[in-house]
Design a protein around this nucleic acid. Structure first.
Lengths: 201, 201
DNA sequence: CCACATCTGTAGTGAACACTACATATCTGG
DNA sequence: CCAGATATGTAGTGTTCACTACAGATGTGG
């Protein structure tokens, strides 16, 4: 019993290309023809490796969140809640306007509303965004315990807020907002977190 | 030269139904079959009245922005920049979770990323969102002139910020966030505007 | 070198899509 | 009551979609 013919393409490189297509056109807007061309393979290879279109999206999302996870850890490592928010939102302003990638965020561009048969896609993307929010919330819980945030502060609400601003910035980036515009938004947004911080001397 | 057979359906009522379908499934996710069924008409009537699918979307957007314009005027009429932000974001928290409509905002759900041939749709939606932002900016310019906002405040940045938060809240609503969660976000978000306000006594 | 397993490219599959031809129905103006 | 004009319902049109059957290629284990 042999092991069969080996794969001729690099799965991770192909995923990077697929990620970009989903990022630019959304799940429903991306066609298998576009995906296979970008990935440099033919449909049967795609289906053998990823199952179907939705499987490919999930694999691309896994790769995306893995890459972003590294950066997110740096964000969480900031010393204060305010610094976390600032590092996160300013970083997002830069990332979402990085010409190396399509504008905006894959977790938003992937698909906010989908047609019948793809209802699962927006749900999947929301779940990934929620993971980020949970990380932030845990960090803000710690900040409160450390006395870095006011007693009246609600860590979950703050995390939801920062997450909401991130999403809004992503949509703006995808519709043409430049880096400076996003930084201005981030700058204003951080002040709300600062207002929840103790010792604002 | 007669005037021809009169239309048997009410265009505005039909538009309301079409609006809901686009709102729930997005432009690309909505099919002509779904639209005609919701509108209670057959395809030829749709095309005779609205030209094509994109024409129908634009008509639905016109109706949506017209309805929202009334509410927006009330928001703008609030006495201070802070009150404007509060009225806007709290109102949005309620509207985006109103069970009478699909969750979120049509200007976001309509389509953030689209496939080849529909690139115009995200652009169209962005233009409508920009109109809202312009209204806010003008109001904040006035607030600054009135001494309601600090000298250092940037009205355009504040307007972009409020607009970004609105969009983020819409995405959250569409992925299941409840009214209370959105109100918490709005509550935090308003504090950033408050931080730009003068006379915070 | 042979049986077996997996990948690859060609060339399609049926289904769903946006959109429309056409015959018929219903109005206005004369 | 007739001629012109527009709306409607039926029943399609061609195109594009996600997905796959199949045959040939390329590997491993015996």
């Amino acid at each position: 019993m042999g092991m069969g013919r080996p794969r001729e393409f690099d799965a991770e490189m192909a995923l990077d290309q697929a990620m970009e297509v989903f990022w630019r056109h959304g799940y429903e807007g991306a066609t298998i023809a576009q995906l296979t061309e970008a990935m440099g393979i033919n449909p049967p290879s795609l289906y053998a490796c990823f199952g179907n279109k939705e499987g490919l999206l999930k694999a691309a999302l896994d790769r995306y969140t893995k890459l972003r996870g590294v950066w997110m850890d740096e964000v969480i490592a900031a010393p204060t809640a305010r610094a976390v928010a600032e590092r996160m939102l300013m970083g997002i302003a830069d990332k979402q306007t990085d010409p190396a990638n399509p504008p905006g965020c894959l977790l938003v561009q992937g698909g906010i509303a989908c047609g019948t048969g793809s209802e699962n896609v927006p749900f999947e993307l929301a779940a990934r965004r929620a993971q980020n929010e949970d990380q932030l919330r845990d960090r803000f819980v710690r900040a409160k315990a450390e006395g870095d945030l006011k007693e009246s502060a609600d860590p979950a609400a703050l995390a939801r807020y920062v997450s909401a601003v991130s999403v809004g910035m992503g949509v703006m980036a995808s519709s043409g907002a430049d880096r400076e515009a996003l930084r201005q938004v981030a700058d204003v947004a951080v002040q709300a977190v600062a207002a929840q911080s103790a010792d604002r001397t």
